[in-house]
Design a protein around this nucleic acid. Structure first.
Length: 275
DNA sequence: AGCTCAACCTGCTGGC
DNA sequence: TGCCAGCAGGTTGAGC
């Protein structure tokens, strides 16, 4: 479920429900996530008040009085604010119980998610935490531009799609939006990243921004009331131009779209429009 | 240093 | 209907 737009939408949705609330307790039903939740986390967090919520890459940072909670939704994770008394469903692994009778409930069937405590503020954790310190720029920040991609790609030979999905290069571009952006930029996903010029990278950056921005708006529509329900995965698929559409005609030229595995991930492209 | 691959999990779909 | 293979929106870390 979560690509960057959904993480951003989740952030915007839960922010007003959490900021300023005290955490009564952290209930861990299932600690076995991508990294196990350390047993002492619950005791450390209880009684602290939520300051601010922010996002770095696809990590959500919950600022508390004496540190931060770092939360990642992995491949299948989602967050909802529910009544603290409402019965948990299968795969509801963690509750962050708030002083107002609600709780932030973390649901994650595949358990690729992550919940860690750091004694650093969200700002410091973003700079120093091992999971965050080596991340590239945010795709919507000015630091992400054509020159950035051009410079980093000169010594590398990987396919541009793998390059674009490398979090050390730029964060937050998952498989769906890598495919969509390369289609709109007319770049073949398997093209070696060092064989793309500055101007094409400039175009690619513009397109990435536009796609993410648009889907944040859409994600908002789709998931706006995720507090009540989990959102609607089918809705997204409608606006996708190539992802999941192997064999269907290209919206530009009608040529059947192709599918190919690049860097272990399914890739979709138009063999005529993209080079 | 850069690249590829396996691994962490459950759930769903499509073929037989 | 049931079984099984294959695939899924992410990320890390080992080994070449």
């Amino acid at each position: 479920m979560p690509e960057l737009p959904e993480v951003e939408t989740t952030l915007r949705g839960i922010r007003p429900r959490l900021e300023g609330r005290r955490i009564d307790r952290l209930l861990v039903r299932e600690p076995r996530l991508r990294q196990p939740i350390p047993p002492e986390t619950a005791a450390l967090v209880a009684g602290q008040t939520v300051g601010s919520l922010s996002r770095r890459s696809k990590y959500l940072l919950i600022g508390l009085d004496r540190g931060s909670l770092i939360l990642h939704l992995g491949m299948s994770g989602s967050l909802r604010v529910v009544d603290a008394e409402s019965p948990p469903k299968r795969h509801d692994h963690v509750d962050l119980a708030l002083s107002d009778g609600h709780c932030l409930r973390f649901h994650d069937p595949r358990r690729f998610g992550l919940l860690l405590w750091s004694e650093d503020s969200p700002e410091l954790a973003g700079l120093r935490h091992p999971l965050l310190s080596r991340l590239g720029p945010e795709p919507l920040d000015a630091a992400f531009d054509g020159g950035h991609l051009y410079r980093l790609s000169r010594q590398r030979r990987v396919a541009v799609k793998s390059f674009l999905m490398d979090a050390a290069v730029v964060v937050g571009i998952g498989n769906i939006y890598a495919n969509e952006s390369l289609f709109l930029a007319r770049i073949h996903p398997a093209r070696a990243c060092h064989r793309i010029g500055l101007d094409r990278y400039g175009r690619l950056v513009e397109v990435v921004r536009a796609v993410l921005q648009a889907s944040i708006t859409q994600g908002g529509t789709t998931l706006r009331d995720f507090v009540k329900d989990d959102g609607n995965p089918g809705y997204f698929a409608q606006s996708l131009r190539v992802y999941g559409r192997a064999g269907e005609p290209c919206v530009q030229c009608g040529t059947p779209l192709r599918q190919q595995r690049i860097g272990q991930r399914s890739s979709f492209y138009c063999p005529r429009c993209q080079h």
